[in-house]
Design a protein around this nucleic acid. Sequence first.
DNA 1: TGTACATCAGTGAACGCGCGTTCACTGATGTAC
DNA 2: TGTACATCAGTGAACGCGCGTTCACTGATGTAC
Lengths: 209, 209
Amino acid sequence: MSHTVGVRQAQKLKTRQALLDAALALLEHRSLGSLGLREVTRAVGVAPTAFYRHFDDTAALGVALVEETLGSLHGLIAAILAATGDSEERLERSVSVIAAHVAAQPGHFRFIAREQHGGVAPVRAAIADQLALFAEEVAAVLGAEPAGAGWSRQDLLMLGGLYVDHMVLTASALLEAGPAGEAEVVRVARRRLRLVTLGRQHWLDGPAR
Amino acid sequence: MSHTVGVRQAQKLKTRQALLDAALALLEHRSLGSLGLREVTRAVGVAPTAFYRHFDDTAALGVALVEETLGSLHGLIAAILAATGDSEERLERSVSVIAAHVAAQPGHFRFIAREQHGGVAPVRAAIADQLALFAEEVAAVLGAEPAGAGWSRQDLLMLGGLYVDHMVLTASALLEAGPAGEAEVVRVARRRLRLVTLGRQHWLDGPAR
DNA sequence: TGTACATCAGTGAACGCGCGTTCACTGATGTAC
DNA sequence: TGTACATCAGTGAACGCGCGTTCACTGATGTAC
């Protein structure tokens, strides 16, 4: 039998993923700070000590969850923004894509929203890092298109950060509202984006500075 | 001796306040979900069972902390917005007032930022209620001034919510940045507000709907 | 004002329980020859 | 291919500890007369 990955390594990764999945499920109604290592291993069906073969502690597991959730999202938002269409179309598509992603993996987004300002420092830092990267990616796209001509790097970053924060707030609001309130949240999110877009269009109108 | 308040009641309130203060101090680096009732009473110097004379559990204490922090803020933001001055002045004053409040009682604002999307449902609900009230108060002020003429109630609420969310994000960013990064956070917060204000000024320009 | 009784904020012992971490271990997988 | 040894993911017992909650209690404060 060939061993392109190695049976042992494959099994280890499987257990690690099971720990991540179990933790995410346990975190539906609580925050990471109150999650116990024994709870996670119990849910997976391994001995408590097996946890240490994969993570130093629950904070390290949290950082891994951040990477699992946000690491795979890079390029996505930039791709949405880069697609053609007038600003109203683009705006509606952005909100729809966010809503679809949140509906597809609610646990992951709930975790991010909850821990973004949560009590576990390394996790907070990991989320901040990823979101800062998103903001830069968005800023790069916005700066490259015609409407971004004449914008300073700082202003582009400010706008990118605004879009990213808006995205996270929208995701959190969608989760809080549940399926029944989704339509209303989407409506308000679009309205907000529309207002920001208007502000963007007139950003360079003002008095010289 | 007259008993305008009652010695017993006064002492009880004092203990209750001590519990609230101790809890807030303990929550500087953690979230409410991981706060133990015994930690709080230990910090105050009373028996664990004394806790139950004041709160059913730590979630109830959290709700009381929400009221202590946000309950006293009503009218403040509305007052800032209602004050005279052009939009740029008003904008700078708003950000300064927020920064001053955060610097004056960092623990309280950290608590709100952390628990806004946190793992304790009753606390999350209490914060959402208070912030919704703020949004309505802001919307009322915005609707009453000339620039708000022609705005629908829904649009005013959207804008009020945007300002409130921006305020909370700014408070959180100030706490995360510390004294050293405060100036930069304030700069970006002003820039964002300026963009929103521009969007507001052109909200009614668009195609009829 | 004085006395007798009621209230109730805070006490302290006790309980069963789940926690994180340590340690020496087992046995399947991997590797060297 | 076969054998002998190394690696290491997962085990299971054990530990000391702090937790939330119960209960009957104490003694200062409050109230009725």
